[in-house]
Design a binder for these strands. Structure first.
Lengths: 344, 344
DNA sequence: TTGAAAGCGCTAACAC
DNA sequence: GTGTTAGCGCTTTCAA
């Protein structure tokens, strides 16, 4: 493999000039530049990124750390959307994306530290999981770069991109109330698994109920792990405990699928239970085009996190956190009630 | 950040001894080793991976290159399964995984070359897409490391991990024939988009028909891009052209979803069309537990590809290609025909 | 506008 | 079992 010195020799210039052509080419005489470029072409020279990294003390890599054990990971569609957003942004500005999903959740944060201290990456994007407040303390103490996908502790002011689901859930609840529903379930997100600093879905739900003068029954709310299985189980137990349940709001699309499956398995008809989806993912829209949905800007969240980590790396300072909003999308419900088609 | 020299100084040994403790610690006296480890601990020393890479001429990174433009990518569940398999293997043996999904498909292969020549990665995993035969030629000429997820040209003998869907599709077709179906559609995989070297699904399909003495009608076969949309469109046109169609085999699970949606939208009942899924993904099993399915060992394929690229990097030679098999899973069909529940 | 020389942090020969 | 030294391929003062 040709090195920069080979190019310099062939072009009869110094190594530094080649380096200049590679990086800050406007400081080089055009004629010299052409000679260098020709030599590069001729030798099929590709700069050794590792050597440049060593000298610059910059890996040009971002780590995306997933704390769930890898079989959850690559199957959770929201995480994929966040990953995609991050990928698209950081690759646009010249960073590579390293993904790491330690097999054991507890190793994830250590892995994040290792990657960063090793200089394998210039900064990491982290999910809020248990123990992350300690890890953030260490990142800050050592002046390492990180961004979190959510607020990880009460006083966190910087370096996060979070989504506030309060508005989406408020609108969803209000909509269901306006249709006449009075027993509305909420399959909420987990508070043991992740480390969320506030209960936004619940807040929106309770506020809408309160405004309508409807009593809030805690037993109508169940926490789940965002997964299909949890959607399935929690819906079943919810409906069994509340036979008069007529509507349910799901915290995620996989939970929505589980709920739909549970509805079918329980022998309920579509118009007995109205389901609101949690993420508004493309697949959900295609599979179940009648479902109204809370929107979850996962792609945007990942993208903003990518942008933030790149800025933090370049500026060398912390950056105030960003909160993204949610909305609610109504889809045509008439279609459901008159549909007699059976899907599978 | 502490360097190896700082550790050496604190432990009162030479840099090389520290390096030995880090890498080949059995060659160091236990007492010395403990002193070094104590110094490492005390300084919170983390070896600079970039410096080691430069010296060793080894990045310890694998590139996973996705050639579809990133919005296809992180949404195709099979690709995610392959990625997961690769991730799990390579991270187990100490490699980092870099994923790259150039926004334009045509850039993907150049990106693969760039990453490798730059030394950003030690080797790449590639999908068979148009023009890949040329790229492979260049990889081989320059002695660069690659593995392909499928056979990319007729004479390819090495460095691939492919899946042969002939058996799975043969069994699926045979099964449908045994149930009395005579007009069986095949929503086949694409041949313009990827670069597959053989038409395995079609082979299995035709063989089963032939053995049963049933005529093979080319118009019962449609190519699709593995996507929901293609499943939807192709099924519609298939059924419109062949009103006597009673069963269909889908090349992928997203196509299966599209087909199911089309069936619902066309006002057909479940027992009028029997659908065979293409991948047997967990989500499909959960959403549509009644569907029989061809199995697609995507995770295993990704894992094997990871294993192969690591071996190729370590051995420095090419490795004979591997072909993975497919099967067919029958699920309880009675449940379908008697089910009157409506899913959404 | 260009070049000479030092050095990023580690590892590999080769000595002892 | 341990140390000395050179050098991976680049960038960066500093000088010309």
């Amino acid at each position: 493999m040709a090195t920069l010195y080979d190019v310099a020799k062939l072009a009869r210039v110094s190594p530094k000039t080649v380096s200049r052509v590679l990086n800050e080419s406007h400081l080089v005489a055009e004629e010299t530049r052409q000679r260098v470029l020709a030599a590069i072409e001729k030798l099929d020279y590709h700069p050794n990124a590792i050597a440049a990294s060593l000298k610059r003390n910059r890996a040009n890599k971002i780590g995306f750390i997933i704390p769930y054990g890898s079989d959850f990971v690559f199957q959770d569609p929201n995480m994929m959307e966040q990953l995609r957003g991050t990928h698209d942004y950081v690759s646009m500005v010249g960073f590579e994306l390293i993904i790491s999903a330690p097999l054991h959740k507890k190793d994830a944060l250590q892995e994040a530290l290792r990657l960063t201290k090793n200089r394998n990456v210039d900064g990491v994007i982290l999910y809020p999981s248990n123990g992350i407040d300690q890890i953030i303390k260490e990142f800050r103490a050592k002046n390492l770069r990180y961004v979190t996908l959510g607020i990880c502790y009460d006083q966190q002011k910087n370096n996060f991109v979070e989504v506030d689901q309060t508005p989406g859930c408020y609108l969803a609840t209000k909509y269901l109330l306006s249709l006449g529903h009075r027993r509305i379930g909420l399959l909420n997100k987990p508070y043991s698994f992740f480390m969320f600093s506030r209960d936004d879905l619940l807040n929106g739900y309770v506020r809408a109920l309160h405004e309508a003068g409807i009593e809030y029954l805690p037993s109508l709310v169940r926490e789940g792990n965002f997964t299909f299985e949890d959607g399935y189980e929690k819906f079943r137990s919810l409906k069994e405990e509340h036979p008069d349940l007529t509507a349910v709001i799901c915290a995620s699309d996989p939970m929505t699928y589980g709920t739909i499956r549970a509805i079918a398995d329980m022998g309920l008809k579509t118009d007995e239970i109205q389901v609101v989806a949690g993420d508004n993912l493309p697949l959900t829209q295609k599979l179940f085009p009648q479902l109204s949905s809370i929107t979850n800007p996962s792609y945007e969240q990942g993208k903003q996190a990518g942008k933030m980590i790149v800025n933090i790396i370049n500026e060398g300072t912390e950056i105030p956190g960003v909160t993204l909003n949610t909305e609610f999308v109504v889809r045509n419900m008439q279609a459901i009630n008159h549909r007699e088609n059976i899907i599978v």
